[in-house]
Design a protein around this nucleic acid. Structure first.
Lengths: 148, 148
DNA sequence: TTGCATCCGGTACCCAGGTACAGGCTTACC
DNA sequence: GGTAAGCCTGTACCTGGGTACCGGATGCAA
């Protein structure tokens, strides 16, 4: 029979995840409970591989598992509503990613300044006026201070 | 007496951290055990405020607490060795930050593509050939696939 | 000297995203 | 039909960076 479905180990291998992760995702509501064999073993429909790829992609795009679960549930329950929120959420996430990149830019510039200034000891630098490490400013995150 | 030192609450307030965090940092080896009052209360030297700022800065630059602890210990034990590794570690960290930024760039472009393509449902998109969401490629992280 | 704020140590809990292990049952293959 | 691999549930543990609560002791000021 070809409709016997995938066993958890097969699915895990096919999707490149751990078997335990499948059960974890089931608990978290990312995967619906699949049908079982007479003996109680899970039998997954074969498109679950795709679903797992979707989950991993969304995670990689910066969505948390809760957010992914929401998005998937919205997709499942969307009967005739046109908008399940993916557009809006992707837009928010984009803003988040852009914020993160801006932060990292500051950090990168600071590290570069520290390297080219030859900073050698964190504590010593904190005491010297001409150190590019922004010991007070960074928390606010603004212009870099390498005017030394 | 001016050498009485800071009590943990004072230090915590001055540095903008939680009192519990001070004890946590002590456990983690970021702060050395300070001297105590006769009754056992911690009395911190006043420059510990600076040290905490250093720690927070280093964290913000992407160092983990373990790494910060290492850097501080290296600074403390450096008697006449010139290099305590800050330069090398900062260089590594810079590479790490640059990798992270490259990742985020891919993610940002992908999100932008998904938004402008009007993607609406993760699972539906995964089935359509003309979806910009890279359900298989992203894990490897390479060129974006918005040629649709 | 009394009262209240603060601090002590120890332990438990939180978030996210899993991973591991134990003891027992099922399935598949020869 | 035997045996080994795989799967089941439940629970505990991991990393990282803290936070919260407890009962009891201390510090400081009026």
């Amino acid at each position: 029979m070809t409709d016997s479905g995938l066993r958890s180990g097969e699915l895990a291998d096919a999707a490149g995840v751990n078997v335990q992760t499948l059960r974890y995702y089931e608990r978290r509501g990312l995967l619906v409970s699949p049908r079982r064999s007479p003996g109680g073993h899970r039998l997954y429909p074969s498109d679950t591989v795709t679903l797992l790829r979707v989950i991993k992609t969304a995670q990689r795009l910066g969505f948390t598992l809760n957010e992914v679960a929401d998005l998937l549930a919205a997709g499942r329950h969307r009967h005739r509503r046109t908008d399940n929120g993916l557009q809006a959420r992707a837009t928010e996430k984009l803003a988040e990613v852009e914020r993160k990149m801006a932060d990292l830019t500051v950090i990168r510039d600071t590290l570069r300044a520290a390297i080219s200034a030859g900073c050698d000891d964190l504590v010593a630098c904190a005491g010297s006026a001409c150190c590019p490490l922004p010991f007070t400013e960074l928390a606010e995150g603004n212009d870099h201070a390498d005017q030394c």
